[in-house]
Design a protein around this nucleic acid. Structure first.
Lengths: 154, 154
DNA sequence: ATTAAATAGTACTATAATGGTACAGAATAA
DNA sequence: TTATTCTGTACCATTATAGTACTATTTAAT
């Protein structure tokens, strides 16, 4: 099912809660109770998001976590890669070492094409998009939005 | 890493071998030796591809497997869903039962949007594309290819 | 200074998923 | 009838995931 890990799913829930909340700084505890996710799990996720520079942390009393930048500038791609590492569908998209068929494969480069396409799709969606109500039958639905595929290969 | 299972990876290797081969019908044994994948594993994959109507099987002596249609008509999406079930990044994209936050979530529909985008990307690549040498600096690279996003919502 | 409130880091464990294997059954051609 | 080849089910070992626990470190407030 082309799965995303549960933690990544949680991360989006946490981040959208943080983006919607007025408070600038939230503690792991506050986030845990608000989202219903167990505290240790929340901490784990927050830490990863800090490492990926999606969040900024402040230690000590009155400390907590805050978005490192505007929700419009946090892409879904960055969240996913923070939790799961580089976005790639197949092993050989990351490193082709250990692939017996390496040179004779020929599929490899095509996979990387697909990868880039998907990566682009994920880059184009931000946290701000996630929290805004979906324009199900409004804007997007009846509008011809075009994506330049060339932009994938900058 | 937004991972695709190893079996799915094998499936693409198997299918591209079959598409490239001249023989109309290949036995599981032949495919196994040609690709270097263990026979039982190959059988398992072939069976799933038959169920998904990507391949056609013939039983008995002189039996074997063959593509059910031209390589141009076999999409990567169909291969992935054959091996991994419906293409969806999050659980709730498949069924929202068991999601505590269900109605209050608001993220759900946005995920489904992303899902559809990715699904579309995978629909647009066929087995024929996979086996043809990548036009790295030729066609695609310098061409403005546009994808109508509306087509995602038919 | 001392204490309380937080995050940071490491390590561990149980559960689930995946990959791979084995075996008995069914269909077909020779 | 026999050899060949797919079909289906069930099983096991390995790995990955999710979740937990514990200790160290940093900072604000008293």
């Amino acid at each position: 099912m082309l799965r995303l890990s549960k933690l990544t799913d949680y991360a989006t829930v946490i981040l959208s809660f943080m983006a919607k909340d007025d408070a600038q700084v939230l503690t792991a505890m506050e986030i845990a109770t608000a989202t219903g996710i167990a505290l240790p799990t929340v901490s784990k996720i927050l830490k990863l998001l800090v490492n990926a520079k999606v969040l900024i942390s402040t230690r000590g009393a009155k400390g907590g976590y805050a978005l490192s930048r505007a929700a419009e500038k946090i892409t879904v791609a960055s969240v996913i890669s923070a939790l799961e590492g580089p976005i790639a569908l197949t092993e050989c998209s990351i490193s082709q070492l250990g692939c017996e068929q390496a040179s004779g494969c020929g599929i490899r480069s095509n996979w990387s094409l697909i990868n880039q396409t998907i990566h682009h799709a994920l880059e184009s969606v931000t946290l701000a998009d996630m929290i805004k109500p979906v324009p199900v039958k409004d804007v997007v639905w009846n509008q011809e939005v075009m994506i330049p595929v060339t932009s994938l290969y900058r």
